[in-house]
Amino acid sequence: MNIQVEVLDLSTIVTPEGDIDTMESTRLREALKPILASETHRLVVDLSGVKYMDSSGIATLIEALQICKQKSKQFVICGLQDGVRSIIELARLDTIFVIKTNREEALIA
């Protein structure tokens, strides 16, 4: 999995590309760590390049959401493909996460 990080003013966009399973969720967690510790006000995870995510990927997003809440940062996910949207809905997390269609919408959320 390839993970891109872009810093735009007070927002940081993380764009993983590829499947997020048990092996790759560890890499995503490591990529998010320094951003969660930084001064960024808004963390956007753009999932448009992710076709598949398992519960370890969901756990990584929940961890990031909880840290953002503790630190008064905004956490937004966007670009969900059908398979990823399906697992988030099954886990009933669609009302917990702020979900936007694309990164442009996420940056003004």
Binding site: S55, I58, A59, T60, I62, E63, Q66, A91, L93, I96
Partner: peptide, 9 residues
Amino acid sequence: VRPGGLGVH
């Protein structure tokens, strides 16, 4: 809402 424990669900 916490990480983990979703697999069986």
